[in-house]
Design a binder for these strands. Structure first.
Lengths: 154, 154
DNA sequence: CTAAAGCGTAACTATGATTGTTACGCAATC
DNA sequence: GATTGCGTAACAATCATAGTTACGCTTTAG
């Protein structure tokens, strides 16, 4: 449990939902992510607020994808999750009045901003539909283990 | 205590050392960073291993800068600290055999790599001597508080 | 040669973030 | 009315950075 994997997990799930095309319960999605339903609801809630998915309670309920995979980019998901900074390194706040600290921070922030722009530009280019196509052509190469497991069960 | 601030702190310290030009004890440096000497030694140890600074024990000991500010870039410090990944987000490892997860991760890694390249490129452009110059001209603008404090004491 | 100054480290605690888990309330459907 | 499923609160587990205390070793002043 080291880095933030919410973006990766949500992309994974949304593509599955787009390919399956129906309604998935948190329980089903939890199995895709090898976790439990509460974690799924927690993260999907952000996507619901931004209109990417919707949920219905009660019998026969679950989650539906509101937009097509072709209409979603990784950037859309990143923004919908509104996590904080994307970069792991940060500035220092030991002596805010020290000119040296201020100059060092200013230089770093400038570099971080350029990197973040580059990242978001790349994210904008990544359509979920394209990733789905790659998954399908990759899936043809993958020989699943006889029992359908992948060595990652509890 | 949120993000990794070691890079920012070390740049701050090295510029001070370059400007002062002498030998600084961990105690003195700790005051610059508003922390204590053990934290300083811990982080400076990495820079010592890479030949950026050297240390001497015993009376009159302390830390010396081995290279000039003009010969050091932020990238040099970043590499010397050999921290792990620079990016906060990561991939998912819930079902390594799932083609969708694999495709999603592959797309993300590609984007992360480009952003990291951009960041390191920027770091390579940032010479510590330039940052020091900015600090000096900024320092002329800053009117220090009468008692020399900056509101960040313990 | 003794004492003080400094680095080098181990060990432990504090803090914060994500993730995992349990429990319970509410809505919808059979 | 019983089951299914979302919505949340509350709490524990895990991990990384940072802070702190303690002790050993080396160097130098006197």
């Amino acid at each position: 449990m080291k880095r933030d994997s919410r973006l990766a997990r949500m992309i994974h799930v949304l593509i599955h939902m787009g390919l399956l095309g129906g309604r998935e319960t948190s329980e089903t999605i939890a199995k895709m992510l090898n976790t439990n339903p509460v974690v799924v609801r927690r993260t999907m809630a952000a996507l619901k607020r931004k209109g990417v998915v919707d949920s219905e309670g009660g019998r026969g309920g679950g989650w539906v994808l509101l937009r097509s995979l072709d209409d979603l980019t990784v950037l859309d998901i990143q923004k919908a999750l509104d996590e904080g900074e994307v970069l792991a390194a940060g500035i220092s706040e030991d002596h805010p009045a020290c000119p040296v600290e201020r100059a060092a921070n200013a230089a770093l922030v400038q570099a971080f901003d350029k990197a973040e722009s580059a990242l978001l530009d790349e994210f904008a280019k990544l359509r979920l539909s394209i990733i789905a196509e790659h998954a399908i052509s990759d899936g043809r190469q993958v020989i699943p283990p006889p029992d359908g497991r992948d060595g990652n069960e509890r």
